[in-house]
């Protein structure tokens, strides 16, 4: 059965992250949109909910934790994957306790993120 296309949002203030992850994640046939700041991402999320949100934690103004909270408040079924610049137990614990699906530490390979997204989509389709 042809799987339903998932809508994935990637947020990172490093523009290369979006630039490289878009083609990498689109290979699975999903729809990928990239954003370089929290405001435009949340504005877009307000227009229509996404299935998966991949967000960097540390950004100016609106950070990843705030995005996590607002996304989940809007759409509880959305899977939020956090990117941390530097994995610490506290940040991971905070993110997970606030309902993040998983987190991935920089630097990572596209394959690592794909594996997490695959798990997330399995849960979404279950």
């Amino acid at each position: 059965m042809e799987a339903k296309k998932l809508k994935i949002m990637v947020i990172d203030d490093e523009n290369i992250v979006g630039k490289r992850l878009k083609p990498a994640l689109e290979k699975s046939g999903d729809i990928v949109e990239t954003f370089e700041n929290g405001e435009s991402a949340l504005a877009r999320f307000d227009e229509e909910p996404f299935d998966i949100v991949v967000t960097d934690i540390r950004m100016e103004k609106i950070d990843g934790i705030e995005i996590l909270e607002r996304v989940l408040a809007k759409s509880a079924h959305t899977k939020v994957i956090m990117i941390t610049g530097y994995a610490t137990v506290e940040i991971a614990r905070e993110a997970l306790s606030k309902g993040a699906f998983d987190f991935i530490a920089k630097p990572f390979k596209p394959a690592d993120l794909r594996a997490i997204i695959k798990r997330a989509s399995k849960e979404l389709r279950a």
Binding site: E14, I16, V17, R20, L21, P23, A24, R58, G85, Y86, A105, K106, P107, F108, K109, P110, A111
Partner: peptide, 16 residues
């Protein structure tokens, strides 16, 4: 922390 960003960018770009 800061170094992880260019490293990540390099990693993603090289992998792709």
């Amino acid at each position: 922390h800061e170094l992880n960003n260019p490293l990540n960018n390099t990693m993603l770009t090289a992998e792709m």
